[in-house]
Nucleic acid binder design. Sequence first.
RNA 1: GGGGCUGUAGCUCAGUAGGAUAGAGCAACGGUUUCCUAAACCGUAGGUCGUGGGUUCGACUCCCUCCAGUCCCGCCA
Length: 604
Amino acid sequence: MQVILKELTKSFEVILLKNLIENGKKEVFEKIHKNLINQSSKEEFGDYQCNICLVLSKIYKRNPREIAITFVQILKENKKISNLCEDLEIAGPGFINIKLKNNILIEEIKSNLQCPRAGVPLSNKISKSNSKKKVIVDFSSPNIAKEMHVGHLRSTIIGDTISKIFELRGHSVLRLNHIGDWGTQFGMLITQLKDLYSRDLKEIENIKISDLVEFYKASKKRFDNEKEFQKRSREEVVKLQKGDTQSIEAWKLLCNQSRKEFDEIYKTLNITIKERGESFYNPYLKSIIQDLKCKKILIEDQGAKCVFLDGMTNKEGNPLPLIIQKKDGGFNYATTDLAALRYRFNKEPNGDNANRIIYVTDHGQANHFIGVFQVAKKANWIPEDCEVNHVPFGLVQGIDGKKLKTREGDTIRLKDLLSESVKRAKEDLLKRLENESRFESDEFILNTSRVIGIGAVKYADLSQNRITNYQFSFEKMLSLNGNTAPYLLYTLVRISGINRKNNMTEEDINSKSIEYSHDLEWKLIRKLLKFDEVIISIEKDLMPNRLCNYLFELCQTFNRFYDQVPILKEQKEKKISRLSLCALTEKTLKLSLELLGIESLERM
RNA sequence: GGGGCUGUAGCUCAGUAGGAUAGAGCAACGGUUUCCUAAACCGUAGGUCGUGGGUUCGACUCCCUCCAGUCCCGCCA
């Protein structure tokens, strides 16, 4: 209903301006016309509300209800408004409650049924300033030779959902996996590789490391304890950076091995993402230094080249530096991040020509990004009308409120976590089948538990306000009650059940005679029509949990409707009308689950 | 010392851009099935929105103080 809201707002604005001019207060219009019409704070008040009379009360120094009476009178004379609205009611101290006409709502339902995006308008349909953009979403970003854990899970699925929402709105999206594929740790890894296999790495293509994580741990241990190993590792880093053929071969081996393991996870989670690791930006690092030098913001301090940040100090109270080049001449992650940011905003062919860059990383990096963005701004690397956002998220905790770990205190492997969820979903399913004396094929059982298991993990994460830490609980996320994936999937299954037992043909359903009378029908209609507003708010604030909240409410509303309003038993007209609501609920749910990266089910 | 974030029902959490009586789920108690998957639905109970100020016609929401928790802070990412 975003389009209707816009239209209504426009008409209200015109009248407000006219009213202000008549009262000689034209100048305050700019200040007060924002959010002229809001969502109704409560359903029973109507669809929208306008609180402007309370604001005008102060400006005109008159009673707000009095103002409301005259204001409403003028509004009612407007044809556009009277076409859209049932009635304008003054309530409380001077709120104007707006209720849309039934036929308008029904038209919206019909049009959303036809719309492939269930009523979500493309961005260029709403306003010109918000037209098609190139958006880069930087997410997932695991490190070579390290295990993916729950932290990567959050980044991955939040990033995936945000990307999908932008795509739905018609933007061009580049999903980038900023893999940690460069840095000092490769010195020790390559040295370990040489020690364990052949020193000359002659038959490098035949080397297979069975457990890369164990390999990493072992080499880290040697690096920390053996001086000789440390020395060789440092030398190895230099060789690698110089582009020594053998070192590069070894580096590639490690990356390929890691990539295979990442891809397995991405396949399980059904994630598409373009790999572009840190090493990609190596050729651009030197010019970062030069550029900052030219702009006179680079300062040498204790041998390191830094940019000092505004508004931040260190423990001694001195300005905090962002180190761009270490005293040994090496670069670090701030340098890479700056090079990446500049490249992404640059025009093609030496850039991505992005309008907006979104970084989905854990909250621990918030300060780092504040620094990086500040330096980028100082260096003029963020073009006008372009935007950078850090999308931080909190920790995943165990039920004990501490960082999620195995009983032995190790990080939990993402692989294990996902298969555990599927296993539990399968156990639940089997129990249910037994209780209900149902028989299902192995294929059904396998697929259903996979969809529920993976979906539950994703949904639990996405439904949480990302900023706060959250407690990971298989029991809760797989529960059939509450704001969970199984609850939403069950709602979908109910609709599929209706579809299966419905004997009407397509042609019958396309009939025009749609009408509603039941209170629960109207509640469902109004809930359905809020979908686009939710999507647009997420595009702005990057909070996917709002979609989950909405879906939960939608399903609750639908289930109340389903419980009390018969569908298939009804006469033709009523039946068609109600089937239409089922169809739009189904469409909205399926599309939303797709946005959340969760597969749908017809039976469960 | 500086900076980020958090503090809402017994527990886990929602709460756009300030609006009318602060919402869910779980747990507790009670009710609903000739009907489309009861994996559902309905009801009862539960709150000084961390504290104290300020701005406002109006504050969980904005500003400041303080308290508590957590993360980051010179050559790791």
